[in-house]
């Protein structure tokens, strides 16, 4: 190891040890704030995963009036088969829907139902969630079309709740990130104060500005890095716990649908580490600029 590398390692570690209480406080704050940043990212990606799943499972139904003529039914069929915003349109006859109603309706209602009064339908999968609304707007009121249905409200509500939760976590995380940067700034300031005699001697004997600054920059950087590594541990642990608790036998459950892929988890970890190092560097850079006059 070169003289300088040895010097930086020695000085940085002694600074960290000398200010260990504030260092621990800074690292813990960085950890919590970055955990929340990570949680926000996990929530965002999980919601996106779940949204894809919901959209995959969402069916839009174009109900044909029981009195619709075969020509009207054929016209709707042709148009749906050519529409770019839906796939897999299957036609369900009046009898099919009558049999389905047997499972859905109470016997008192079902018993008075006649096959001839039940509408037939086209069950289609929209390409994306909003495409369900396009189908509605395109087909409602067409000759022979009785109604167009899709779980619009459920989709909108679930997305809204996740969006609110995600923003709330992000705002708290940002506030904590600012606190982390201030805490790191303060520990660097204390380190500078504790070493002011050494810094004065270094200046007198001709140490360059960067020679003096680098151990302090490393100190902030290490605090940020340590905090982010701990936060990474929490995020991975949390995701594992979620994976364990999610029921694979119930793939429709939101907890299962929100699980992240390994790539998504890796991406989150990379962002958390980069943000941690950036927070540490920014905190120490401000401290050096304000308190280390070289």
């Amino acid at each position: 190891m070169s003289n300088y590398a040895e010097y930086v390692v020695k000085e940085t570690s002694s600074n960290l040890w000398r200010n260990r209480v504030t260092t621990i406080a800074a690292v813990v704050t960085v950890m919590i704030s970055l955990f929340l940043v990570g949680a926000s990212l996990v929530l965002r990606q999980g919601a996106s995963n779940a949204e894809v799943q919901w959209h995959r499972g969402t069916q839009v139904r174009v109900w044909m009036s029981p009195a619709a003529t075969p020509q009207e039914i054929a016209a709707v069929k042709v148009e749906l088969s050519q529409a770019p915003y839906v796939t897999d349109c299957g036609y369900r006859t009046q009898l099919d829907n009558y049999q389905e109603a047997q499972h859905l309706l109470p016997p008192s209602v079902f018993n008075v139902l006649k096959v001839s009064k039940v509408p037939s339908s086209f069950n289609c999968t929209p390409l994306t969630g909003p495409d369900a609304a396009v189908v509605y707007n395109e087909f409602i009121g067409r000759p022979g079309v009785f109604n167009v249905t899709a779980p619009f409200a459920t989709l909108r509500n679930d997305q809204r709740y996740i969006e609110i939760a995600q923003w709330a976590v992000l705002v708290v995380a940002l506030l904590l990130l600012i606190s982390s940067a201030v805490l790191i700034l303060n520990t660097i300031r204390m380190a500078i104060l504790a070493r002011r005699r050494e810094v004065a001697v270094m200046k007198l004997v001709g140490a360059t500005n960067w020679f003096i600054r680098i151990p302090f920059i490393f100190e902030g950087l290490i605090q940020g890095l340590l905090g982010s590594l701990l936060a990474t541990g929490l995020i991975i642990g949390g995701e594992e716990l979620w994976r364990t608790l999610a029921d694979p036998n119930n793939p429709q459950a939101i907890g299962y649908q929100m699980l992240l892929s390994n790539w998504q988890l890796l991406w989150t970890v990379v962002i958390v580490v980069v943000v941690g190092v950036a927070i540490g560097s920014i905190g120490s850079a401000i401290a050096i600029r304000r308190f280390l006059d070289v």
Partner: peptide, 22 residues
């Protein structure tokens, strides 16, 4: 203006260390 946590040798060596002398 000596550094109290360093020995006599270290105080003198410090002046050379911080300007990168081998």
């Amino acid at each position: 203006r000596l550094l109290q946590n360093k020995t006599v040798f270290e105080n003198v060596a410090f002046a050379l260390e911080v300007i990168g002398r081998p």
